[in-house]
Computed example of a mutant assay.
Amino acid sequence: MRIVYGMDKLLTYLYQCELTVEKKEIAELIETKSFPHLRPFKDNLAFNLDHVDHWIQDQTEK
């Protein structure tokens, strides 16, 4: 399982995957539960990159 912690590290990963998404867009997707994420603590976000990869694949297929 590959996990990154925090929005900035997620955005760096998405940029490396050649997907340009703004922080605000990701925040809105998280709020509507449309983006895979974990909240191990109240104010912390974690992202399983395997799940993020599946989300990216779904977005490119649309």
Rank of each mutant, 00 (worst) to 15 (best):
K42A: 09
L38G: 05
K23Q: 13
L45P: 01
L49C: 03
A27T: 10
L45T: 06
E22R: 08
I56G: 03
E22T: 15
T12S: 15
Q57I: 12
A27W: 09
V4G: 01
F41P: 00
L38Q: 12
K23W: 11
K33H: 07
I3V: 10
Q16M: 14
N48I: 06
F35K: 05
Q16H: 15
T60N: 11
L38F: 14
G6N: 09
D8E: 13
C17V: 12
K62I: 08
H37A: 15
W55C: 08
R2L: 07
I30R: 13
P40Q: 07
F47M: 02
Q16G: 13
E28R: 13
L19D: 03
C17K: 14
Q16S: 09
E61M: 12
M1T: 07
E22M: 13
E61A: 09
E22V: 04
D8T: 13
D58G: 04
I30Q: 10
Y15A: 14
F47V: 02
E22Y: 12
N44T: 05
E61F: 06
L49G: 02
Y5D: 01
I56A: 03
G6H: 09
K24R: 15
G6T: 06
D50V: 06
E18K: 14
T12L: 13
C17Y: 11
K42F: 03
R2Y: 02
Q57L: 14
P40H: 03
E28N: 09
V21N: 05
V4H: 01
K23R: 10
E22P: 05
E61S: 08
F41A: 12
A27E: 08
P36S: 01
A27Q: 14
E22G: 08
E28Q: 07
H51E: 13
N44K: 09
D8N: 12
V21G: 08
Q59Y: 00
D53V: 05
T32P: 00
E61Y: 04
H37R: 12
T20C: 11
S34H: 05
V4Q: 01
Y13F: 11
L49K: 01
H54E: 07
